[in-house]
């Protein structure tokens, strides 16, 4: 009990950050499932969502600035796909990945230019920024809200993918891109839709994440982005429940590591986990194996 009391804050923080990673990870895993592309820019879209909120809330009330942030993020995600990935649809996979790295570089530099490289204070969103005590631990309400909200959104998404026509199209494309195209699936709109969902969830994730961390910097998206990707790989890329579970595991592990005082290694640990899973079970926890035909 004593152990729990001292360490509860870390575990709570782990669950909370895990939920935030999960919201980003879904964007990675869905895009990868369909396009076989690591969308390196996704973490930066998440960062842009953070800045959008900073600038919008400076002049607008929250009930306008929050939806506006989400809309801007979604439009950005859509535009990135449209401009940087769609023209390369038939190019080798490496080219699209390089394009993604280029977009990431561009977004970071733009953010740096606009903010002059300074960290910006994230606006306080009432209620979720308030403190709450759980047992002996005191934390923000956002910590408790995050996992709940994440699960609700994920369930909604799973239902969407399972029971709607566009969800079926997405599953078909993940299985076999070319055949789906031949079967008359409008691949471009499905891909756009995928990016829209991914960016929407990233925007929600950024609201929660930055409320927790209080400042936004131009490179704030890089690490959470990479970690979310690791989570997606960990859970088996292409699988949404996998990404969510992976994200929670990574979020908790990371904070447990901090609990033991090895903060230097909290990022490195994530990658160590990634490499172990890739080597031991390259398809992740829930991924499907695919074989090349010779």
């Amino acid at each position: 009990m004593e152990f729990l009391n001292t360490n509860l804050p870390y575990i709570l923080a782990g669950i909370s950050v895990g939920g935030q990673y999960a919201l980003i990870a879904i964007g990675y895993t869905m895009v990868y499932g369909i396009l076989r592309l690591i969308n390196f820019a996704h973490g930066d879209i998440f960062m842009v969502a953070g800045f959008a909120m900073v600038y919008l809330s400076a002049s607008l009330p929250l009930y306008i600035s929050i939806p506006m942030t989400i809309i801007i993020t979604v439009v950005l995600g859509f535009a990135v796909e449209r401009m940087a990935y769609r023209p390369l649809r038939t190019a080798p996979r490496m080219s699209i990945m390089i394009s993604a790295i280029g977009v990431s570089y561009l977004l970071q530099n733009c953010a740096w230019y606009i903010t002059s490289g300074l960290a910006k204070q994230y606006p306080t969103i009432p209620w979720i920024s308030e403190s709450i005590s759980i047992g002996t631990a005191t934390t923000k309400i956002v910590t408790v809200i995050t996992p709940v909200l994440t699960l609700v959104l994920v369930i909604a998404l799973v239902i969407l993918i399972k029971y709607t026509k566009i969800g079926m199209a997405m599953r078909a494309m993940a299985k076999d891109f070319e055949t789906s195209r031949l079967m008359g699936v409008k691949i471009n709109s499905v891909i756009s839709f995928t990016f829209i969902i991914g960016s929407f969830l990233a925007a929600i994730g950024s609201l929660l994440y930055f409320t927790n961390y209080a400042t936004v910097t131009p490179i704030a998206g890089a690490m959470p982005g990479l970690k979310a990707f690791v989570a997606a790989v960990f859970g088996g890329i292409g699988s949404i429940p996998g990404a969510v579970i992976g994200a929670f595991i990574i979020g908790i592990c990371e904070n447990v590591i901090k609990m033991f005082g090895w903060t230097t290694f909290s990022d490195a640990f994530t990658f160590a986990l990634l490499i172990i899973i890739l080597v031991a079970k390259p398809t992740g926890l829930f991924g499907e194996k695919s074989t090349d035909k010779v």
């Binding site: 076989r36 592309l37 690591i38 996979r93 490496m94 990945m97 990479l226 990707f229 690791v230 790989v233 230097t264 290694f265 990022d267 490195a268 994530t270 990658f271 160590a272 990634l274 490499i275 890739l278 080597v279 390259p282």
Partner: peptide, 25 residues
């Protein structure tokens, strides 16, 4: 030894990960 068995983008992310681990180390 472990990483080169991986295919294209997995290899990319694993090597990126190793670079981060080295940096922390």
């Amino acid at each position: 030894l472990p990483v080169l068995r991986l295919k294209s983008d997995y290899l990319a992310i694993a090597t990126l990960g190793f670079a981060e681990i080295i940096r922390a180390f």
